[in-house]
């Protein structure tokens, strides 16, 4: 089964590279889903079906749906319909589909051959919960603080409203609107998308 492991690893790496090189956030997200699915496939091929399912439900399911919602909601307006049409052109979804097809093929091979590690009895839910909330309860609580650090940090750095503009911006306002485009670095992501679309 190590061949399956290597194939899904390659898929994961390719998909992740595409995530960070894609220009549009929504396309990057599509590849991110593929990347999560590939990681889940790695777990499955190693004989850890429980973690594989969790990966699909939590990452590919919940988190990605949330992300897509947020990205979609960032720019509401007249141009939104046009933009969505652009996003759904065939060349956009062909790439992810091929990668996912590879993963699907792998999974069917794994399941049809039957004798592999993937068919081991799944780990009991109850045992996992007991370990998490009895032995390692401090770790779970600390992870809670870890998430808090991430959220507070992201909330601070991503905040839009600005009380004191940077001195470059102040100069830009004083000089009038002529060089506004060059100097106005602080634009909302939604506006950025709109601008981009107008250029297209």
């Amino acid at each position: 089964m190590s061949l399956l492991f290597y194939i899904s690893s390659v898929v994961a790496i390719v998909a992740t590279l595409l995530v960070i090189t894609c220009h549009r956030p929504i396309h990057a997200l599509l590849y991110l889903v593929v990347s999560f699915l590939a990681v889940s496939m790695i777990f499955l091929s190693l004989g850890a079906p429980f973690v594989a399912v969790l990966e699909v439900i939590l990452y590919a399911g919940a988190i990605i749906v949330l992300l897509i919602f947020v990205v979609m909601m960032l720019n509401l307006g007249q141009e939104a319909a046009l933009q969505e049409k652009q996003w759904l052109q065939p060349k956009v979804w062909v790439g992810p589909s091929i990668l996912v097809a590879v993963l699907l093929l792998e999974m069917s091979i794994l399941l049809l051959r039957g004798e592999s590690a993937a068919i081991q009895p799944a780990v009991d839910m109850k045992r996992i919960s007991l370990v998490l909330f009895k032995e390692y309860v401090i770790a779970v609580e600390l992870v809670g603080f870890l998430l808090m650090a991430g959220i507070v940090g992201a909330a601070h750095i991503g905040k839009h409203k600005k009380k004191h503009p940077h001195r470059f911006l102040q100069n830009g306002k004083e000089n009038g609107h002529a060089d506004n485009n060059e100097n106005n670095k602080e634009v909302k992501p939604g506006e950025l998308l709109k601008e981009e679309m107008i250029h297209n």
């Binding site: 600390l142 992870v143 870890l146 650090a149 992201a154 750095i157």
Partner: peptide
């Protein structure tokens, strides 16, 4: 690992 991540994630934002 959790301690180290807690430290470094706070540091990214700080």
């Amino acid at each position: 690992f959790i301690g180290l991540e807690l430290l470094s994630i706070s540091l990214y934002a700080l």
